[in-house]
């Protein structure tokens, strides 16, 4: 199941996606990603209720792409999505006392997002709009990314991060410096203390291993 699908079905592991984005992509243990999910969100919200600002900050950041995906799925388009995201964040803040940690977090969040999405669409429909070419206007494709695009990107990053984490240390080091940080062979050699030849060999072996591991998994075939 992709992350975007999970966001819609309520089984999203948002913290999982977030940790990929912020953490060191090559050194992050794969286990920590698998253990997070709905429970982590509930725990983070509970911590926020107790006044833990760091947990609250992380939670809100993690919620942003989810809110955005939910709003798109509800039919909100264009700049209104940002309004929905911000209104939802404010509502989460205002309503945080009403969250019961014994219950899952995402249905609580979804109810708020849906209400704010409806508000945004009502507001947009009240705004006067002059349309000269009606058919062209209605047939125009939305410029923005598809619903769940950001989440799909994060999902792919997560899979690459998992594959990189499973490489032997030498190969992981080569991939990290040459491919991910885009360092030259000279710079990477200076940093790691390995010869350029060793780095090249490790790099090519790592690429081969990654190609094999990503194409072997069904989800990884489109990476």
């Amino acid at each position: 199941m992709s992350l975007a699908q999970a966001a819609h079905s309520g089984r999203l592991s948002v913290l999982q996606a977030r940790s990929v984005e912020t953490g060191s992509i090559a050194t992050m243990p794969a286990r920590s990603m698998a253990s997070s999910g709905e429970g982590s969100l509930s725990t983070a919200m509970q911590a926020a209720q107790n006044g833990d600002a760091a947990a609250y900050r992380t939670l809100l950041r993690d919620c942003v792409p989810v809110i955005s995906a939910m709003a798109r799925a509800k039919g909100v388009q264009g700049p209104s999505i940002d309004d929905v995201v911000q209104d939802t964040l404010l509502t989460i803040h205002r309503a945080r006392a009403s969250y019961d940690p014994a219950r899952p977090f995402l249905p609580w969040l979804r109810a708020i997002v849906q209400r704010r999405a409806i508000d945004a669409m009502r507001h947009a429909s009240r705004r006067p709009r002059e349309v000269h070419d009606r058919i062209a206007y209605e047939a125009r494709a939305d410029d923005g990314p598809l619903p769940g695009h950001d989440l799909d990107v994060r999902d792919r990053r997560r899979m690459v991060a998992e594959a990189v984490a499973h490489l032997p240390p030498g190969q992981r080091e080569a991939i990290e410096h040459i491919a991910l940080r885009e360092l030259s062979l000279d710079e990477a050699s200076l940093l790691t203390g390995r010869t350029k030849t060793a780095l090249k060999v490790n790099f090519h072996r790592a690429l081969k291993a990654l190609r094999a591991s990503l194409s072997s998994s069904k989800e990884g075939s489109d990476v």
Partner: peptide, 20 residues
């Protein structure tokens, strides 16, 4: 389209004003 900077500012503001 998306405006991550203003979201980040709002998140920061809300986290700063958080009270138990």
């Amino acid at each position: 389209m998306s405006d991550p900077a203003s979201h980040e500012r709002l998140v920061e503001e809300l986290a700063r004003s958080l009270a138990p």
